[in-house]
């Protein structure tokens, strides 16, 4: 009788604290998730900024370094934003459509471009790209040079790709866009969605490209060779319609 009373008391205490804990855990999770969705989610997070680093140039132009691989679905998602961002500062040619690895279990066959044979001409930016491996991950395609290797090992010791460096002062480790947005889509479908300028996929690519454009503009502003801009924000806005030209 006494034990039963004690057990009832324990049960009541357990149920009460469990419900309180449950409410607390779920509340904290919802609050933290809302906060993180403002900056992460499927949309671009800020690039990491190292304001005290010296700006890296190549042939007198701002060095934009990309390290990735054709098999990687995260690189595939990020390439759309890179193409969109860099199209504001120069001209692309020979951009070949590919799909990321078909063997990737989570995000297979993400449509994208490959940078292997792509040509980018700009009088402001030197585009240095390294696609480490092919679509199947079994053939090495390009090697990093000393500068790229140094930056990669210093700022990305975990070896995560894609890796982006804008002038050695802005870094992006990983993608700002989730490959989940591209799942099951063909290359042409992604092109159409971006050209329509509507939907989650376009928003994600656009926002990430704007992150990169902002980083490039800030880095270029630090270089004395760049044109003086009366208003950087206005300049960015005037660039937006150019996106369509390259899709």
């Amino acid at each position: 009788m006494k034990k039963s009373k004690k057990n009832n008391k324990n049960r009541n205490i357990f149920i009460f604290i469990f419900i309180v804990a449950l409410i607390l855990i779920i509340s904290i999770y919802i609050i933290m998730n809302q906060e993180s969705n403002k900056v992460t989610g499927v949309y671009a997070t800020n690039l990491t900024y190292y304001p005290n680093n010296p700006i890296i140039t190549q042939n007198g132009k701002l060095a934009f370094i990309y390290i990735g691989a054709e098999y990687c679905p995260y690189c595939a998602a990020e390439r759309w934003a890179i193409v969109m961002a860099l199209s504001h500062f120069g001209n692309w040619s020979n951009l070949q459509p590919i799909y990321s690895s078909p063997y990737e279990k989570t995000y297979p066959n993400i449509p994208t471009y490959t940078f292997v044979d792509a040509i980018y001409k700009s009088n402001k930016i030197e585009f240095l790209e390294v696609e480490l491996s092919n679509r199947y991950g079994n053939v090495s395609l390009q090697q990093m040079n000393t500068l790229e290797e140094q930056l990669f090992s210093t700022y990305d010791p975990g070896g995560a790709i894609p890796f982006i460096s804008v002038g050695g002062i802005y870094f992006r480790i990983g993608s700002g866009i989730s490959p989940a947005l591209f799942l099951g889509l063909s290359f042409q479908q992604v092109q159409q969605m971006i050209n329509s300028k509507q939907g989650q996929l376009y928003q994600a690519v656009y926002q990430e490209s704007q992150q990169l454009v902002n980083a490039i503009l800030n880095a270029l502003n630090k270089l004395s060779s760049y044109i003086t801009l009366p208003n950087v924000n206005q300049f960015i806005l005037s660039l937006i319609p150019k996106c369509n030209d390259y899709y």
Binding site: I28, Y29, M32, S36, T40, A69, Y71, C72, P73, Y74, C75, A77, L132, G158, G159, A160, I161, P162, I173, G174, S175, G176, I177, S178, P179
Partner: peptide, 12 residues
């Protein structure tokens, strides 16, 4: 709360 916000990346 912390690890789920891992970067979207492939590991070389």
């Amino acid at each position: 709360f912390f690890e789920s916000n891992a970067t979207l990346s492939c590991n070389t």
